[in-house]
Design a protein around this nucleic acid. Structure first.
Lengths: 109, 109
DNA sequence: TCATTTAGTTCTATTTTGGAACTTATAACG
DNA sequence: CGTTATAAGTTCCAAAATAGAACTAAATGA
């Protein structure tokens, strides 16, 4: 099966994951909640490859989760849309689960 | 940056996504909540490639989210562990978001 | 004995991601 | 002005992950 078939799946969880169930997307959204907004900020924060970041941001805008805004001549930044902000409970549950069940570990040498 | 570095990230969301932030893993967990337990069931339900499924199940067991159980001679099935069941709120929020913001669409021809 | 069921492997092709250098446009410096 | 710095992407190649289909192995049942 192809991932893209999830878009029209009967299960709402599948449809949600079609949009953000890949590597990085949810972390970009997290960074938006933390106040990051610019390409360079996301890139430094996540260490994500630049052209992958480009693709993710484009998709999040297409899906109506982020809005792109020209903050200076030819410079664009990104912010959560109203729809995007409704993802807060999802992130909160991911946070709570991680905090409780994946305690911080020292990097083993 | 590599995905595997998320394991020791300071952010609990990142640590959670290290385990289930890839394609398929959260859908396998969803299927477990729906009562599926066998390899063939997951495979048919998701249409996922068999050896990818093998890897995901192995990892979920290693991470303590699923438990593997011999239900017949040489036949194993999988069930949510106690830790795995604590993922319910995460799935509920993904469900609610999808239901509200990704309404069902007819497959466009 | 022989077909069936089921969990899991193996193999190749395609897609996705990682890493690093390069481009374009504007702003800032002197 | 001419140069340097910033910032948002692009482009290119290598490495890793995923898709698809065929194959194994072990137990079951007719």
């Amino acid at each position: 099966m192809k991932w893209s078939n999830l878009e029209t799946d009967i299960c709402p969880i599948a449809r949600t994951l079609f949009v953000m169930g890949d590597r990085w997307t949810l972390l970009i959204i997290r960074d938006c909640f933390l106040g990051l907004s610019r390409f360079e900020q996301f890139q430094k924060s996540l260490g994500i490859t630049r052209h992958i970041l480009t693709g993710r941001l484009k998709r999040l805008v297409d899906e109506g989760i982020l809005v792109k805004h020209e903050y200076a001549r030819g410079r664009y930044d990104y912010a959560l849309s109203e729809t995007g902000r409704t993802l807060e409970p999802v992130l909160i549950e991911l946070f709570k689960w991680g905090k409780k069940h994946r305690p911080v570990r020292r990097k083993t040498a």
